[in-house]
Amino acid sequence: MTRTSAIFRRELSGYFTTPLAYVFIVIFLVLAGVLAFFVGNFFDRGQADLQSFFVFHPWLYLVLIPALSMRLWAEERKSGTIELFLTLPIRLSEAVIGKFLAAWCFAGIALLLTFPFWITVNVLGDPDNGMILAGYLASWLMAGAVLAIGAAVSAGTKNQVIAFVVTAALVFVLAVAGTPTVLGLLQGWAPSSVIRAVAGASLFGHFTAITRGVVDLRDLVYFLSIMVAFLAANAIIIDLKKAD
């Protein structure tokens, strides 16, 4: 536990010693604002909620989170510090979890910094704050799932650009899995169990379910199992492929 927290603290403070943290947060806040106001018609909808804000988060994460996760392991490989890191008396699980939690916590900080939106809707109207809380939870879970996928991809390469592109592609596939277009393509030839499985695997589907204000156990389990599965994959990839 103390070792995981040592890794966690090193990683988290690592974000803030480089411009990465500030660039990421600024771009995240600006894009979230621009999308909510101009594309989502935050004001014109005339409703005191944050739906038009949360609805774009999956797309934002599709682009921004891989930028955060790409360095997790690829940078250690590139600079050779992975050899130092993994010959310290730590378990591989502690290394994987410490790194992931730091990145997830950082994403949480960026998300919390969107609090002016929450203040704005509370000043302008009388929103359902429970629903907004659920929206934040959904957004944070979504970020965690994308980060876990990105961490596993980053574990397999020393090239951060490759890590970024592959993660974004994987997340895109998981994202569009539940859309009518994809399901329509499967309709007619694939067995209904496959269609149900593809629809159920959709990141956006589970995200939207929670943002509606209903925190269903199945959606929580979905996000947590994505994280656990990809973190396990992360550990296996590191273990199999340490040298190069």
């Binding site: 103390t2 070792r3 040592a6 890794i7 603290r9 090193r10 403070s13 690592g14 010693t17 480089t18 600079s79 050779g80 510090t81 050899e83 130092l84 010959t87 310290l88 008396p89 730590i90």
Partner: peptide, 22 residues
């Protein structure tokens, strides 16, 4: 290790402190 890898963004003191905690 070969090439004495260390985390470039950290100061030497932060780096040694991290190792000490681990």
């Amino acid at each position: 290790p070969e090439g004495a890898p260390a985390y470039p963004d950290m100061t030497a003191a932060e780096f040694l402190d991290f190792i000490a905690h681990i």
